[in-house]
């Protein structure tokens, strides 16, 4: 008899979500903020897959998780290009020091 229920997965994903939020709001470095966003997206993905498995929704939930992974890949590529441009302009990527739009 398996004792793991849907609630176990939901608790894991909510703790992961909160850790991601913590990373986003406390880190100065832009790349660390990106890592926090990846944690948040992964927490959402765990929820999708867990609900699809326990709620008997077929494969649609897994497909939503797949779409989220694709969007995360696109987002990471674009964000990295933006970060490289910011680094070229300001020679650092601390998000609290980048407070000018244009010279």
């Amino acid at each position: 008899m398996i004792n793991i229920t849907l609630y176990h997965y939901l608790i894991v994903s909510s703790v992961l979500f909160c850790l991601g939020i913590f990373g986003v709001i406390t880190r100065k470095n832009a790349i660390m903020v990106l890592m926090g966003i990846e944690l948040i997206l992964n927490a959402a993905n765990i929820n999708f897959v867990a609900f699809a498995r326990y709620g008997n929704f077929g494969n649609s939930g897994q497909l939503a998780a797949l779409f989220v992974i694709i969007l995360a890949a696109a987002e990471a590529a674009i964000a990295m290009a933006i970060v490289l441009n910011i680094y070229k302009t300001f020679t650092n990527i601390n998000i609290d020091e980048i407070d000018t739009l244009k010279d």
Binding site: A65, I70, A72, M80
Partner: peptide, 26 residues
Amino acid sequence: LYVLLSADFIAIVQLVVYVGGILVLL
């Protein structure tokens, strides 16, 4: 966790895209 939820394809995509792609990009 994905494997435990019997989402085998998502697990493989997670490995290939996240570990192989996004993490290297970071």
